[in-house]
Simulated assay, not measured.
Amino acid sequence: MTPLPRALLCLAFDQPIPANRHGVLIPAARIDETDIRGAIVVVETDSDIATFQNALTAGAAMIALNGCRTGADLQRLATLLSVTEAEIGHPEGSTPILAMTDGIIPAPAARESLAGKSRRLAGLAWDQRALALTLGATRTRTRSGEWTAPFATARAATLLAAAAAGVPAYDSFPDMNDDAFVPICNQSRADGFFGSFAIRAAQMEAVETLYAG
């Protein structure tokens, strides 16, 4: 199995797809644009079999489930992937899942949590942008640079849920200048995160180096 990336780059619809697609998150709607082999295809909780067939046939290395909140979301995707793998001749269980969440998730020991729901789960990523949309928040940080209370809580919940499920956790940050990027990555790694989202493609190498060091 290809090693998990430490840097995740979530492409917008107008961003070009990089030649090196390891760790690149490509929206399902962009599957047909170019060669996506080795990339991570992002699907929604209500995506259908046709979407998964397109993604796996095109060579997706992993499926990222956007908006994942409960174990039921994860189980539904795992079931659909099993059906898809059987239909296109891929080995059962060969497609890992990256769960992407806004951090509004059940407690790690709750019945609805992600722990123990699927062996496909490879990682849990906290998307602070998704939480901002959920809350309608116009700020994510205090004047001193710390996360506001809802964001700090959701970030911690994601880290704990990943630990309970036995998978790596990915952090995310607001857009920032490069001078602030290195110390915040170092702090994130010290907190226990395996990797993080990269804001720009140019930051992916820095994330890989900082979290692996």
Rank of each mutant, 00 (worst) to 15 (best):
L77N: 05
A99E: 02
G136I: 04
A149F: 06
A165Q: 01
L131Y: 11
R76A: 14
A149H: 06
A130Y: 14
M100W: 08
S94Y: 15
A110N: 12
A107Y: 10
T84V: 01
R141V: 06
Q128S: 14
R129C: 04
A163K: 12
A130N: 05
A110L: 02
T134L: 05
T101W: 10
A165D: 00
M100N: 05
A122C: 01
L159N: 08
A154V: 01
A163L: 00
A163F: 00
A132G: 08
L121T: 03
L124K: 07
R111E: 11
A149D: 11
R155C: 09
D127L: 01
A161C: 05
P108D: 08
G71M: 00
W126F: 15
D73V: 08
L135A: 13
M62F: 07
E85C: 05
A161W: 07
P91Q: 09
T153V: 07
G136C: 01
L121C: 10
R129A: 11
T70I: 03
R129G: 09
K117N: 13
G123V: 02
R143P: 12
I105Q: 10
G116E: 01
E92F: 13
L133C: 08
I104S: 12
A154E: 00
R69K: 13
R111I: 03
A110V: 02
G136Q: 10
M100Y: 09
A161F: 04
W147D: 13
L135C: 10
L65R: 03
Q75S: 15
A72Q: 15
E87W: 03
I105P: 03
S113W: 05
A107F: 09
L131K: 07
E92W: 12
T148E: 01
L80W: 14
T79P: 06
S113N: 07
